[in-house]
């Protein structure tokens, strides 16, 4: 069927917001990750990295999100990290 609402543009549907917010909150619920726990992981990752390189605290982003599961359908929790490097320590 021709979807007229797509052609003429439509106002955002509130159910899309509901679904997106739910997906995000469930990832955290399922992984059972508290902010304190996440901070601890962040700190320890940074400590390890600091041994080998100068990393920047600014723009640092370590988070629990979802990724595609191995079966390509289900969504599983995953840690994504974006850590800017200032310089790598040469031995």
């Amino acid at each position: 069927m021709l979807d007229l609402s797509k052609i003429f543009g439509r106002k955002p549907r509130s159910k899309d917001a509901a679904k997106d917010r739910l997906k995000l909150v469930l990832v955290h619920d399922r992984a059972n990750v508290s902010p304190e726990f996440l901070q601890k992981i962040k700190d320890e990752i940074m400590q390890v990295l600091a041994k080998y390189m100068d990393v920047s605290d600014e723009g640092l982003d370590i988070n629990v999100t979802t990724a595609q599961g191995e079966d390509g359908k289900s969504r599983v929790p995953a840690i994504t990290a974006n850590i800017p490097i200032k310089s790598i320590k040469q031995k």
Partner: peptide, 18 residues
């Protein structure tokens, strides 16, 4: 409400809950 996109549909709920 489902029709005008203001309520999660059955498929939406099942997809989220899996």
């Amino acid at each position: 409400m489902v029709k005008r996109g203001d309520m999660l549909s059955v498929d939406d709920v099942i997809e989220v809950l899996n």
